[in-house]
């Protein structure tokens, strides 16, 4: 745990020393303020469209941060070869994975707090009231969803060789779940049998990230969700995150530290990198 926390602290430092987060935050703020400066029919108490736009930007930014940060972690350790001095220390690969996860997830949490604070200021300044419970539920559920996203992307980063394609693949999967996940059961009903079964299986297997998207409830001032239901959702997210982390560990513990080693002639490197099996067994 101590080792994992040390690794996590490095990940967090990296996030706040890179520009990505600030760029996304400033973009979100500027677009929201611009949209907020529009006047519709001289009515300056219109607020819901602004809440929706701001939350949409927050969701996009948070996904970009979560996937971007976690897709990079392990490939960057390999590319910069920082993994060599690190694993030469008394740290296990499981602790490394746990640390990377915690770091990315906590970093996302910090980013979310900043974003939601901005959102809170915007909505309170317009509505002159603050639905604190709904606000915290949205933040909380969003954060747990990012936990699943981070774990999933970490798994992708040890399975797929190229980090950029991993990021793209993860984003595509996550976006499809967010947009379609809830409806797969209805799609399954309309399909013929072999396909219908497949779609049903996918429906029950994928992590339903869209559950954690309570933007509509916040935008339209619905009552807060039952807290017990929130606890259930949290456990649901935790189960998937743990599952993905475990899978990441299973794959990573059997991998070579590098897909190619330094110190051989540069000409052969590229070929070898492509040719080497991504998963070489420890035990042979």
């Amino acid at each position: 745990m101590n080792n994992a926390l040390s690794v996590a602290s490095i990940v967090i430092k990296e996030l706040y020393r890179r520009k990505d987060f600030y760029v996304l935050f400033v973009l979100t703020a500027i677009i929201t303020l611009l949209m907020g400066s529009l006047h519709f029919f001289n009515d300056d108490r219109i607020v819901r469209y602004l809440k929706e736009i701001c939350l949409l930007l927050i969701w996009i930014s948070a996904l970009a941060i979560a996937v971007g940060t976690s897709a990079r972690q392990i490939p960057a350790e390999r590319e910069n070869r920082t993994i060599f001095p690190l694993l030469a220390k008394p740290i296990t690969r499981g602790q490394l994975i746990a640390g990377k996860f915690l770091g990315c997830w906590l970093a996302c949490g910090l980013a979310l707090i900043v974003f939601y604070f901005f959102f809170g200021v915007i909505s309170v300044s317009r509505e002159h009231q603050w639905a604190a419970a709904s606000f915290f539920q949205a933040l909380w559920l969003h954060w747990w969803m990012l936990g699943v996203v981070v774990a999933m992307t970490l798994l992708g980063s040890v399975v797929f060789a190229a980090p950029s394609s991993n990021g793209t693949i993860c984003l595509l999967i996550i976006l499809s779940i967010l947009l379609l996940g809830r409806h797969l059961n209805k799609v399954a009903v309309q399909l013929a049998e072999p396909m219908s079964g497949v779609v049903s299986a996918v429906y029950f297997a994928v992590p339903h990230l869209e559950l954690f998207d309570v933007r509509d409830l916040v935008v339209h001032n619905w009552d807060p969700i039952n807290w017990l239901i929130c606890v259930g959702a949290t456990l649901y997210a935790a189960a998937y995150a743990i599952f993905f982390l475990f899978a990441t560990w299973l794959v990573f513990r059997r991998q070579l530290v590098l897909r190619w080693q330094p110190g051989c002639s540069p000409g052969t490197r590229v070929g070898r990198a492509a040719a080497l099996s991504p998963i070489a067994c420890w035990a042979s």
Binding site: I46, R48, F204, E210, L217, A233
Partner: peptide, 29 residues
Amino acid sequence: DWIDRFSRNFYPSRHSHLDRPGEAREILP
């Protein structure tokens, strides 16, 4: 199914109209 049942807690799943005074302004933008 249970996912469907569970997920209805997380999005508006009851019929509702903007009928409190002035609320209809929200559709204008």
